[in-house]
Amino acid sequence: MKEQIVELIRRAHAQLPRDVVTALRAAYRREDGEIARLQLRNMLENIKLAKKLGIPMCQDTGLPIFYVYLAKNADRKAIEKAIIQGVKEATQKVPLRQNVVNPLTRKNSGNNLGEGIPLINWKFSNRSATEILYLPKGAGSENCSAAKMLKPSEGLEGIKEFVLETVKSAGGKPCPPTIVGVGIGGSFDLAAKLAKEALLRPINSYSKRGDIARLEKELLKEINSLGIGPMGFGGRTTSLKVNIEYAACHTASLPVVVNVQCWAHRYARAIVHGN
């Protein structure tokens, strides 16, 4: 299973999901500014080169985050061990940049492991096989994310204003065109969890809820009218997609979290059979 994890990690870094590549190509056709087009051309050429060579497209190979959808009789301990060993081995074999440090001493562990890292989100499923999703999260975009506890009276307008403000103040820093994950409702921590999970939904899909899907479309339109453009040089495409997940919340609160993802939206899945 460890080898499968190493391959999962390698694949995620060398190949972008098809929907993301399609969206970047569409952005290239849409832009007419010379510099905006140059940025997108570099991205598309980089995607091709990384795939051909089987190497990480971006040197920031991220913080290792996993979502595990456990099958009925799966051996959780064994999976956890395989993930940890897989990250360690992938650091040497893929290779990955050594990104993980102690938050205070800033000492680098050298193997992408550390207290609480890799972050493994355990989910339960009724399927016969376990699914493992790997999402390496780069810091350039993660650093532009933000959380806010809105007053319920601020409502929909308040939510939109906060998302737009977050994207605007990020400017070119998170490597636009970005994918914007938004978590609405729940508690302080649940909203953050939802914002990240929103990134896992394909960017050619919309929320099943009509009002949320509408908000996704409206926000994308308003973000793209900010004019930040590819890498902040101006243009029509600041974001490729806004994905929103929501949860019920306390009558007195309205948590909103915006999790920004760079154009190099790397993630991949693997199915693990048996134990």
Binding site: I55, P56, M57, Q59, G140, C175, A264
Partner: peptide
């Protein structure tokens, strides 16, 4: 001077 972010493979070439 700016290079396109995320284009690590291209830069390494």
């Amino acid at each position: 001077l700016c290079f396109t972010g995320g284009c690590g493979a291209l830069a390494a070439r």
